[in-house]
């Protein structure tokens, strides 16, 4: 069955499946923290000084970067599954995935820049 496949990620399936779950666990650890911080800022219980003290530190930056990498990996792999499932014309798939990969890379650069520019 497998060896007859002509397209799709026939070699990378297990790799991507595993990476999707590994990144999911990392996100499940960090996302509640980011969400809680956002809510605390929203309802006024966390002011900017204390927010910056949390984010603008080596540990804050490192955790944020790990979170960023896991989130964008997870998002990319998730969209890839959707495109492979619902877009049946290979040319469209290639075009879409190219656009999505470019967008994700752009977001990664933007996000890195925001995180690592603090305090400079």
């Amino acid at each position: 069955m497998l060896k007859n496949m002509r397209y799709g990620s026939a070699h990378n399936g297990l790799n991507e499946w595993y990476l999707q779950r590994l990144s999911a666990v990392v996100i499940a650890l960090f996302m509640p923290m980011a969400f809680a911080l956002l809510l605390a800022v929203y309802d006024g219980s966390l002011d900017q000084m204390r927010l910056l003290n949390l984010l603008n530190s080596h540990i804050g930056r490192t955790l944020h970067t790990l979170f960023l990498l896991a989130l964008l990996t997870h998002a990319y792999l998730g969209i890839k599954v959707l495109v492979e499932d619902y877009v049946h014309v290979v040319a469209w798939r290639v075009l879409l995935m190219g656009l999505i990969l470019t967008t994700v890379a752009g977001l990664a650069v933007w996000w890195f820049a925001v995180i690592w520019a603090w305090g400079s």
Binding site: L38, V41, L52, N56, A75, L107, V114, W118
Partner: peptide
């Protein structure tokens, strides 16, 4: 994700 980035850069 872009909304989160806008919020993050605005808040900091």
């Amino acid at each position: 994700v872009p909304v989160y980035l806008c919020l993050l850069s605005g808040l900091t």
